[in-house]
Design a protein around this nucleic acid. Structure first.
Length: 108
DNA sequence: AGGTTGACAAAGG
DNA sequence: GCCTTTGCCAACC
């Protein structure tokens, strides 16, 4: 099912550059919804839609898919873009997509 | 109309 | 690090 909420989420996900990752929470804050909605939206991506869904991972830098449900596939797509894993984790400091550059404002 | 459900996050033990 | 709350909120029974 396609909704306005999914649409807003997908629109942001499409902007994640190759070789970078974003977290569910990061997308959620941009769209102003709960982080779980982001996971829900990605789970329901229509087949055939062009979307770099694999660039979205959880706040700990880990692929948030079950081992038996696409985990390796997502990891492979990320590896192909040059993202490296260290014990199943991505270094967010290094690979996270940063949109706003703030010199003085930081969020809690 | 109301309870359940997540590809989550943050904080605590 | 791992596991367990607790908060979250649109979608889906």
């Amino acid at each position: 099912m396609i909704t306005a909420t999914y649409d807003r989420i997908w629109r942001i996900v499409r902007r994640i550059p190759r070789g970078r990752v974003a977290t569910y929470g990061q997308i959620a804050r941009m769209v102003r919804v709960g982080p779980r909605q982001v996971g829900y939206a990605l789970h329901n991506v229509p087949h055939g839609m062009e979307l770099p869904w694999h660039r979205v991972i959880n706040s700990q830098g880990r692929v948030s898919l079950p081992r038996a449900g696409g985990y390796e596939r997502q990891k492979a797509l990320l590896l192909k873009e040059g993202i490296r894993f260290n014990r199943e984790k991505v270094d967010l400091q290094r690979y996270q997509w940063r949109t706003r550059v703030s010199s003085s404002s930081a969020r809690p």
